[in-house]
């Protein structure tokens, strides 16, 4: 790594703060739209981490899909709900929820760290050993797979089916909601 490690550490810290700070912002404010913006800041931090892990394609996807599409969808969804933009009630059973959240957090962090504990040191070159170009990614994505390399053609097509199913499901649900709304008005 040599002399680049300093700027890497700075970048990692900045993105870490963005990710965690954004996540905190989401849960600590009571306005759903501002929550969406905080979420986008958090996801932007995640995109930065993808870049640091030499996966720029994933980073672009993160920005395109999450900030470009999910954020918009969230705002539309927020505006679909009548008065949820200004939540003023305090939630009950706060401590109980907090305890549950902490336990879940510890379990998840443990599950992430446990398998790789001691496997690498931060700033290790091993992180950058297997940088995959987008061309390789594209080839692997539609490859049958062989003894030499993995192919992901089945998951790829399943993803397509899943997307189709998601769209059909969304349309069915949304149409029901639409009909209900009309029924109320009429």
């Amino acid at each position: 790594m040599g002399d680049a490690s300093f700027s890497l550490i700075v970048a990692f810290t900045v993105f870490g703060i963005l990710t965690l700070g954004g996540a905190l912002g989401v849960i600590l404010n009571r306005n759903l739209f501002r929550g969406t913006i905080w979420l986008m800041i958090s996801l932007f931090g995640v995109a930065g981490h993808f870049v640091l892990l030499s996966a720029p394609f994933l980073a672009a996807v993160q920005v395109l899909v999450y900030i470009g599409a999910i954020a918009i969808l969230f705002t539309f969804a927020v505006m679909l709900t009548r008065s949820l933009t200004q939540i003023t009630d305090r939630f009950t059973r706060l401590w109980w929820n907090l305890g549950g959240a902490i336990v879940l957090f510890v379990v998840l962090v443990g599950a992430v760290i446990w398998p790789v504990w001691g496997g690498f040191t931060p700033g290790d070159d091993i992180l950058f050993a297997n940088v995959m170009s987008t061309t390789d990614l594209g080839i692997a994505l539609v490859d049958r797979g062989s003894d030499l390399r993995q192919g992901f053609v089945l998951p790829f097509e399943v993803a397509s089916l899943l997307l189709t199913a998601a769209m059909i499901g969304a349309i069915v649900i949304a149409r029901e909601a639409d009909d209900e709304e009309k029924g109320k008005r009429g």
């Binding site: 394609f57 920005v63 900030i67 470009g68 954020a71 170009s133």
Partner: peptide, 22 residues
């Protein structure tokens, strides 16, 4: 010269949409 230049363009352009919404 990003390897994902075209995608970068689309991704950054979508930030403008968020700005309008905001």
């Amino acid at each position: 010269n990003l390897e994902i230049g075209a995608l970068f363009f689309v991704a950054i352009a979508s930030l403008g949409t968020l700005a309008i919404m905001t």
